[in-house]
Write a protein that binds this DNA or RNA. Structure first.
Lengths: 118, 118
DNA sequence: CGATGTTACTTACTCAAAGTTAGTTGCTGA
DNA sequence: TCAGCAACTAACTTTGAGTAAGTAACATCG
């Protein structure tokens, strides 16, 4: 129970969600509060309705988001993070910090002072 | 430059690596120090040589790992994390913490005191 | 000398996941 | 009646991941 190998079960469980396309984006855009289907679609750059519907369904099944229907008409559906979904925020922040490292490392031609020749 | 929207470029850059299958596992097992090809393969549960070779090549191209050849024979190849690769550690730890939340949330029938009937 | 083993890969093939386009339902307003 | 909106769903194509077997360079065994 106190063991914590690099590829422990909790790590793999989280990766199972995180490595599926769009999931990390969908959860991130919901961090600021509930959104409707079309609002998520508008905030997640190039996602297709088909993928968004599938992912939201999976995230709901895994208790990361809750789906609420407002009967309208027109019917509106809102998606909101559960506590487990909100817990992703720390992960997202760590990812953003690491992404900064990545971009910095990719282009080490940083400061335009003393340009390299050639 | 001080803006930091939920889906900022750094987040997407990191996700580009992180969401590809096996990457988060490969980088994690390298956290403890350099490993040879076959050692990585042995530590990452069910990965095929084909995938491992492809992923290591990509990670090398993105400057997350360095590849070193010891001419043997038999030739041995070692893979080690770069500083950017080592920076993933914080992400991995955040993922493990979140994974714990996920597993806890999935089975809320936790404490065996006052068992539910049925 | 030829057979077998080792390490770090390739190559060829198969199948599932993801992407693209179009269609559906129930209602509103022109 | 026709277009439009919201939240999907269905059919089809492309891409990515998985499986199995093969390769190169040498080393040892018999």
């Amino acid at each position: 129970m106190t063991e914590d190998p690099l590829l422990c079960a909790t790590y793999l469980a989280a990766l199972d969600i995180l490595t599926k396309s769009w999931n990390a984006m969908i959860i991130a855009v919901l961090e600021d509060g509930p959104l409707r289907f079309s609002e998520v679609a508008a905030r997640v750059p190039a996602i297709a309705d088909r993928m968004l519907a599938a992912r939201l369904k999976e995230l709901e099944a895994r208790s990361l988001v809750v789906r609420r229907v407002y009967p309208g008409p027109p019917v509106r559906v809102s998606y909101e993070l559960t506590p487990a979904g909100r817990g992703f925020r720390e992960v997202a922040e760590a990812i953003r910090r690491w992404g900064k490292m990545l971009l910095d490392a990719e282009k080490p031609r940083a400061h335009p002072r003393r340009a390299a020749r050639g």
